[in-house]
Write a protein that binds this DNA or RNA. Sequence first.
RNA 1: GAGGGCGUAGCUCAGUUGGCAGAGUUCAGGGUUGUGGCCCCUGCGGUCGUGGGUUCGAGUCCCAUCGCUCUCCCCA
Length: 417
Amino acid sequence: MINLIKGFHDILPDESQKWAFITNKARRCLERFGFREIVTPIMEKTELFRRGIGQATDIVEKEMYTFDDIGGESLSLRPEATAGILRSVVEHSLLRHEPILKIFSIGPMFRRERPSKGRFRQFFQINAEVLGDDSPLTDAETILVAFSMLEDIGAKDFSVEINSVGCRDCRDKYRSELRRFLQPSFNRLCPDCQRRFETNPLRILDCKEPECMRIGADAPLISDWLDASCRDHFDQVKTALDSVGVTYRVEPRLVRGLDYYSRTAFEFVHSQLGRTKAIGGGGRYDSLIEELGGPNVSGIGFGIGIERLAMNLPDEGALFQSKIDVFIAIIGSNARGPCFRIANQLRKLGLSVEARYSDMSLKAQMKVADRLCAKWVIMVGENELTQGQFTIRNMKTKNQLLVELSGIEQVVRGEEI
RNA sequence: GAGGGCGUAGCUCAGUUGGCAGAGUUCAGGGUUGUGGCCCCUGCGGUCGUGGGUUCGAGUCCCAUCGCUCUCCCCA
């Protein structure tokens, strides 16, 4: 037997109903906010991710599925959505036609990490981006659309954490200040953080090593180093969120894993399970579009992990239970051909119809109908076919009556017996 | 990358001191000749993860290995 790749997973039919529920709700919500869908390839040139995400990040350094194509070109499965989306936007000059662009995408991402609960090597993300608009209200609305989506889907026990990581200028100043503060304690930092000291000292405040947390406890905070315009921007984001009833917590140590964020950063954190279990997150980026060859405009976006979302939803329930309208129970092999045609006729009317064409007792077929939660069963044998009348049974009330083929739709739609 | 736990029927699991491979459930058939759920009966279903070792004899003990899973790290 050949089994699936470590860290990958199948979405089996039972689970897929839940997935359809989530993605349908998400689509509807995003469309209400004016987002349109974009579908980009799951594979891109490796260079795109090196430029877009940053060569020094863990994702690009250690976690990408990268290989050389037969032509010798280095390709990678996408570890996140934004780079590919922006590549497409820039390549097709979408911002020229529509200077403010709101788009979303739903699809699989790939990171070769060690799998654990809620973490997979292939995972699905709902991703949304607003490009070309740096109003703080857009930041708030982007957080709001994600928040509304989680509400619509029925996610419970999550909280919103936000922070401003400032623009490049304030971050540069803050970064030097932070280095100055951490320098005396450098040797006590964990190896990761010693490396981060050079590459991205902000992440040290995010470290969960006890010693690093102690050292970072009294560190200066980015909020004290925001310049006037960044502080004003952040204040307006918070005011806007307040005005629509989004409850959030300002988390001054929140720093996102990807390097390109500026100003607003946010996460949706599941508050019951372990505290590091983000179900989604995002933020503003101001140089990424230009870096990829587009105009010098900023964008803001977020990603939400579908698996983690699904994990926090109840497993079973009528919510995801699908029902078929009609099951055709076939009595005797001579009735199969006619039933095959009848099934198709009823489907053309818009009904969901099931039948089994292999040799089965009526009892067995009734069991199947029951298992499929059929609302109606039509029983068709030679008698019925010669008389042109069929027994139709309401599976809930157990009432039955004889109807002609043409009357089936009315009975099913009316549910009158 | 570090550290735990677990691998026995499609699924959930039991298996005592090393001594015939088990239960529930699912599925199929029957009880009810053309009528579902509940009940009863019967049946199908196994390389005990894999490979070695110890032993008269290994699901059980030992070694190795693979897989899954959880925690830490990191993230969605």
